[in-house]
Design a protein around this nucleic acid. Structure first.
Lengths: 351, 351
DNA sequence: AAATTTCTGATTTACGTACATCAAAAATTC
DNA sequence: GAATTTTTGATGTACGTAAATCAGAAATTT
C-alpha cells in the first residue's frame, strides 16, 4: 500500500501532529524537525491522498464564469459545458455559476467582475474584451486574492493568472495555410469576415491568416460583422456580388449563420470557405459542402481546464501549463465527431 | 450542503444499514422498502460521493496493458502514456502494468492474455491482431469475469467489452479527402504504404481511403512494409523510382521512419504526403515540409479512456459511450501542438 | 400458533487526511 | 536557575461512505 501520514510519522520519529504541521505548512516546527519529516516524505515517496484530504476539509470552491450573452453558438456551447461540468462539480468540491453580460460591452463586464469579487468567490473565468477598465477590474480581483483566468480571448498585462484558449495567431495561420492548399493554382481573391477588430482574438487570427497567405493571393479588406447574423449576411452578400471571381472566404468570427445563409443563397460554385467553431450550423454546412473546413477549440476542454486552473490557484498549487494547452482542431466533413444528438451525456475531465 | 446517506435514511424513514444495502445492491431488502429508499434518493437528488466511497472501500484495480514491442513510435508513445497515467493511479485506486509482446504475433499475445487472467487482474487492455485464437483468449477473459478492451485496432465478435480507438474507416476517408484537395487538378497516381493487411485497422484505413479518392485518380496497389523501417524504405524508394510522375503517398501504417528517409533521399519536389500518428519523426517531417498532413489519435486520451472503461466495467457501471469516443486529429505544420520537450509533464484525465 | 426464514435496525470500525485542543518537553531568554 | 517562549506529543473529532455484526421485527411456512 502507498504510504500514509502515519508512516511518515513513524519513519521520521515524530508525532502525527508534527507531520500535519509540516504538510500543511502550519507554524510551530523547528527547522531540524521539519527537515527530518521532509526527508521521510521523500524517502517514502508519500503523496497526499487528495480524495481523503478534500473529504476532510469539505471546502467548496464557488467559481464564476462570465460569458457574453446573445445567440453566439460558441458562447452558448461554453455555457452548456459549464452546466455540464456543474453536474460533476459536487464531487470536485466546486460550485459553478454562470453570469452573462452583453457582448463587446466593457462596462457590463466590469460590473459582473466586481459583483463576483463582492461575493468573494474562489475564482473567476471570463471572456473579456480589450479595454483598460476591464484590466483594472481584473487587477481588483487579483488584489482581493481571487484567481482570474481569461477565456478564449486573452488580455495580457492585466494581471490575469492564466489564459485558457487556443493560440489565435496559429489558428489564423492554419486557416491561411489550408486555404492556400485547397485553392492551389486557382485564381481569385480571398475575403475575410470578422466580428470586431476590437477583440484581441479576432485581430490575432487575422494577423496569422495574412502571414500564411501566399503573397500572390489578394486578401480583401476585412469585413466586420459584429458577430451579427444579419449584418454578416449583407456584408458577405455584397462582397460576393462585387467580386464575381472570389476564390475563398475565411470567417474568423462568430457570424457563421449570416455567412452560411449568404452562401446557400448564392449557390456554392467553387468557393473555398473556412470558418471557426464547430456548431450545429457549421457542422451542417460541412456536411453539405458549403464549408470546406472548420477550426475548433473544444469548449468542454476549455471549461474543464479553466476549472482545474482556478482550483489550483485557489489552493496555491502550480499549474502544469503543458497540460492546460488547448489544441486547435481541424475538422473536414470526413473527421466530424459524432453529432450532438449522440453527445448529450455529460463530458468528463477525462478525455 | 449536498445530501448524504444519513439524509436518505431519515427521509425514507429507514436505517443507515438499509440505505447502504439499497445503494450497494446488497441482498436483504424488501421491494417496498427498496422503493421507499430509491424515492428518497431521487427526491433529495442524492449522488454518491465517489471520493468518500473509494476511500472507504480502499479497493485497488490492477489493470494490464498488452502492447506490441519493437520501436514502433506510436506504441512506445502509448506505453509512455500508460506509465504517465500510472503516476496518478494511486489516487484513482488503480495499479497499471504494461506487458509487451512481439508485434503481429498471435501466439505471444494469447500467452500474455492468459497470464493476465491467471493473475486475476481487474481488467485488460490490448492492441490485438486479427486471429481466431486471440478471440478465444478474449472469450476466456470474459468467462473469468475480467473486462477486456481492444486498443487502436478492434476485434468485433470476440466478446471484448469495448473498443478504444478511432474510426479507422473515417481516418482513411479523411486522408483520401485531404489528399484529393491538396492535389487539386495536379495529375499523377497515388501510392499507399501499409504495415500489414492482417491487422484490421490497416485494412479499414485502406478501404476508407479508396472510397474518398476521386475515381479519376489512380491508386497504386498497396505496399506492405510490416511497419519495418528498412522494408518500408526500400518499398517506397522502388516505388518512387518506378513512378516518376507520382503525385502523392499515403502511409496508413507505422513505417514512417523508412518513408521519411526515402523522401528526404529523393528530395521532395511536389509530392503530397499524408501519414499517421504524430511522433517526433512525423512532427519534424511536417515542419520541414516533407510531410503535408498527419492524422493522429491521441495516445493519452486512449489510455485514459481505456482506464475509465475498465474501471467502470469492473464496478459494473455503464460506459458513457459518447464520452469515450476518440477523435481523429488532423495536424498540418501550422497547428502543431507544443513539442515533446515542453510536454514532459504528466497529462491529466482532464484535457 | 409455533417454527422458520427473511428483512430491518442499531452500532461499530475503517479509510486517509484536516484541524483543534491541551499537556508536556525542550529550547530560549533574562 | 527561574521564567518564558517555542516546539512537540497525545488525543479526539470530523468528512461521507463501506462493510460487518448482532439483535430484533416482520413476514412466511408448516
Amino acid at each position: 500500500m502507498r504510504p500514509t501520514v502515519h508512516d511518515i510519522a513513524e519513519t521520521a520519529g515524530v508525532s502525527l501532529a508534527t507531520v500535519d504541521r509540516v504538510l500543511n505548512d502550519r507554524p510551530g516546527v523547528r527547522g531540524v524537525t521539519k527537515a527530518k519529516v521532509e526527508a521521510a516524505i521523500v524517502s517514502l515517496g508519500y503523496v497526499r491522498d487528495v480524495a481523503a484530504a478534500n473529504l476532510a476539509k469539505s471546502r467548496v470552491y464557488p467559481l464564476v464564469f462570465i460569458l457574453p450573452e446573445g445567440d453566439n453558438p460558441f458562447m452558448r456551447g461554453l455555457e452548456a459545458e459549464v452546466r455540464r461540468a456543474g453536474l460533476h462539480s459536487p464531487a470536485e468540491r466546486t460550485r459553478l455559476s454562470v453570469a452573462t453580460v452583453p457582448a463587446f460591452d466593457a462596462g457590463a463586464l466590469v460590473k459582473a467582475i466586481d459583483a463576483a469579487i463582492m461575493e468573494d468567490v474562489s475564482g473567476i473565468a471570463a471572456v473579456v474584451v480589450d479595454a483598460p477598465e476591464v484590466s483594472a477590474a481584473i487587477a481588483r480581483a487579483h488584489a482581493a486574492g481571487i484567481p482570474f483566468v481569461t477565456l478564449v480571448s486573452d488580455l495580457a498585462n492585466s494581471g490575469r493568472d492564466h489564459f485558457v484558449g487556443v493560440d489565435n495567431i496559429a489558428a489564423g495561420r492554419t486557416a491561411g495555410s489550408l486555404m492556400g492548399r485547397f485553392l492551389g493554382e486557382r485564381p481569385g481573391a480571398v475575403a475575410v469576415l470578422a466580428g470586431s477588430m476590437r477583440v484581441r482574438d479576432h485581430r490575432e487570427r487575422l494577423d496569422g491568416f495574412h502571414a500564411a497567405m501566399p503573397v500572390t493571393r489578394t486578401v480583401l479588406p476585412v469585413l466586420e460583422g459584429q458577430d451579427d447574423p444579419d449584418l454578416s449576411f449583407s456584408l458577405i452578400s455584397d462582397c460576393l456580388a462585387a467580386n464575381p471571381t472570389l476564390a475563398g472566404i475565411y470567417n474568423l468570427g462568430a457570424g457563421n449563420r449570416g455567412l452560411i445563409k449568404a452562401l446557400s443563397a448564392r449557390g456554392r460554385a467553387d468557393l473555398c470557405v473556412i470558418a471557426h467553431e464547430l456548431t450545429a450550423e457549421t457542422r451542417a454546412a460541412l456536411e453539405t459542402g458549403l464549408v470546406d473546413a472548420v477550426l475548433n477549440q473544444d469548449a468542454g476542454h476549455e471549461v474543464r481546464s479553466a476549472i482545474r486552473v482556478l482550483r489550483a490557484k485557489a489552493d496555491g498549487l502550480p499549474v502544469i501549463s503543458a497540460q492546460e494547452r488547448i489544441r486547435l482542431d481541424i475538422f473536414i466533413k470526413d473527421n466530424l465527431p459524432a453529432g450532438p444528438d449522440e453527445d448529450e451525456q455529460p463530458g468528463a475531465a477525462g478525455n
